[in-house]
Simulated assay, not measured.
Amino acid sequence: MSPAPDERDRIRSAMDRILAGTPEHSNGALTIVALAMEAQVPRNALTQRHLDLKNEFYDKVRARGQMPDSEKRLRKQIVKLKELRDKDAEELAQLRADVQGLVRAVNQLSLENQQLRTELAAPRGRLRVLPTQPHPPAPYGLST
């Protein structure tokens, strides 16, 4: 599908209206989507056919000391991601400390387990047989 012959002119007019704060067909956001809506052209007209106009739009936005909405969103996302990365780093440090404690506990329990196994396997030097039934008392004067 070939572009309309006045497509570039419509994009430039839409750019002027958005930058002037008087959009007619969009919400006036400083984005390519809003620019395409304002110019009543498909978005790919700016992202594929008229990259120079897209770049010109962003250059004009920056020249006015403003930041495109897409850049604002990305900057906010970067801040959130940095916060998440810091939280993850703290959690990772705690987990590493926990692992060291758990390794010490496992080593201690392994040593105790080995000691108990050695004690169980060792022959007993003294065996005492316990009576299974009590003996009747000896008559007076007799000892067993």
Rank of each mutant, 00 (worst) to 15 (best):
L95V: 13
D52Q: 11
N55A: 11
E112Q: 11
E71A: 08
A29Y: 07
R75S: 09
P42A: 11
R117K: 09
Y58H: 15
A29H: 05
D86Q: 10
L102K: 13
A97K: 15
V103G: 03
K60P: 00
R75M: 10
V79M: 11
E112M: 10
N113I: 03
L81H: 07
T31D: 03
R96I: 09
Y58E: 13
V103Y: 09
G101T: 12
R64W: 06
T118Y: 03
V103N: 07
E38R: 00
M67D: 02
V106S: 06
Q114N: 10
D59L: 14
L51G: 10
A105Y: 02
A45G: 06
R96N: 14
A97T: 15
D69S: 09
P68Q: 06
A97I: 13
D98Q: 15
Q108D: 08
R73C: 06
N107I: 03
Q66N: 12
A93W: 08
L120W: 09
L95M: 14
L53M: 11
L30G: 00
D59S: 14
V99G: 05
L102F: 07
K76P: 01
E71V: 06
K54A: 15
K72G: 01
M37I: 02
T47Q: 07
G101H: 13
A93S: 14
E71K: 02
Q66E: 13
L111S: 06
A63T: 12
L81Q: 14
S110L: 03
S70G: 08
M67L: 15
Q114Y: 03
M67Y: 02
I32C: 04
P68Y: 00
Q94C: 15
A97H: 15
V99I: 15
A36F: 00
K80F: 09
L95D: 12
K54T: 03
T31H: 01
L116N: 11
R104T: 07
R124N: 10
Q100P: 00
E90M: 03
R117V: 06
L84A: 13
A34H: 01
Q66W: 14
E71H: 05
V79A: 14
Q108A: 03
N107T: 04
L84K: 14
K87W: 03
A36N: 01
R62G: 07
V106L: 11
T47G: 05
L111Q: 06
D52Y: 11
P68E: 06
E112P: 04
G101A: 09
L53E: 00
L51Y: 04
A39E: 01
T118Q: 07
D86M: 04
Q94Y: 14
T118P: 01
T47Y: 06
R73A: 08
E90R: 01
N44T: 07
K82C: 05
A122V: 02
A97L: 15
Q115G: 06
D69V: 07
R43T: 08
